[in-house]
């Protein structure tokens, strides 16, 4: 039987894997972003312990391999008596990672804003947090969009690592298929193309977002 003759039987499984890949990416990107905002604010606008903790978290997460983190969460933490499903273990790992990386990108966006902006905000009587919320953050976010969309692309790619802790995502489904049918080259090639398509979609969506939020003076090209 040829590759394309056996493929249809496995399509539902592969589709389910694709769905998990997309779900992992989207949830990790969204929750990671929510976490990254307090992280970057602690990093830039607090002193002492909150700042130190944020710095420590980002350094540790960015300084260790994702796979090792997943092993620690999936195999290590249950030894303390907490049971974690593979999908949830992967999700925790991805959320923490994307939070740390997004915080770093956002920080870049904040640093691109001149200190006069904060002074100007103070000079008309805004409070510190008001100034950060209505003046600084909207600008920092626009500066950070290209980097943030890169982070989603990284997430799409790195969800495949969840295969190693038995999350039945796209790569795992391809592996099952390959062990059943021995069409290794064909199936990995095929899902390689699927990943590339996913990434193409993400970069198109991010271009659209950038276009929608575009404001004269925020052309990213002149910054990089």
């Amino acid at each position: 039987m040829s590759f394309f003759a056996v493929l249809p039987k496995y399509l539902p499984d592969l589709a389910h894997g694709l769905w998990l890949t997309i779900a992992l990416t989207l949830i990790a990107a969204a929750l990671g972003f929510l976490l990254s905002v307090p992280l970057v604010l602690a990093l830039l606008y607090t002193k002492g312990i909150p700042r130190m903790l944020a710095r420590l978290f980002i350094t540790l997460v960015r300084g260790t391999p994702l796979l090792v983190q997943l092993f620690f969460i999936y195999y290590g933490i249950p030894a303390l008596g907490i049971r974690i499903q593979p999908f949830n273990a992967a999700l925790i790992g991805f959320i923490l990672n994307s939070a740390a990386y997004q915080a770093e990108y956002l920080k870049g966006g904040f640093m691109a804003i001149s200190s006069e902006q904060m002074e100007a905000a103070y000079s008309i009587g805004l409070s510190k947090w008001q100034a950060v919320r209505v003046v600084i953050f909207p600008q920092a976010f626009r500066f950070a969009i290209p980097a943030l969309s890169n982070e989603i692309i990284y997430l799409v790619k790195y969800t495949s690592v969840a295969y190693v802790i038995q999350v039945p995502e796209l790569l795992s489904q391809a592996k099952f298929f390959a062990s059943d049918t021995f069409f290794h080259l064909q199936i990995y090639f095929l899902i390689g193309v699927v990943y590339l398509l996913l990434i193409w979609v993400v970069s198109k969506l991010s271009d659209m977002l950038e276009h929608k939020l575009h404001i004269p003076g925020f052309d990213i090209a002149h910054l990089r």
Partner: peptide, 23 residues
């Protein structure tokens, strides 16, 4: 550049490790 920046490392690794013996 576009292909090798986009394809997950693990997928590429599997193509080389499991796929190439097939040819």
């Amino acid at each position: 550049e576009w292909v090798f920046r986009g394809i997950p490392q693990l997928v590429l690794l599997f193509i080389v490790y499991f796929g190439l013996p097939g040819i």
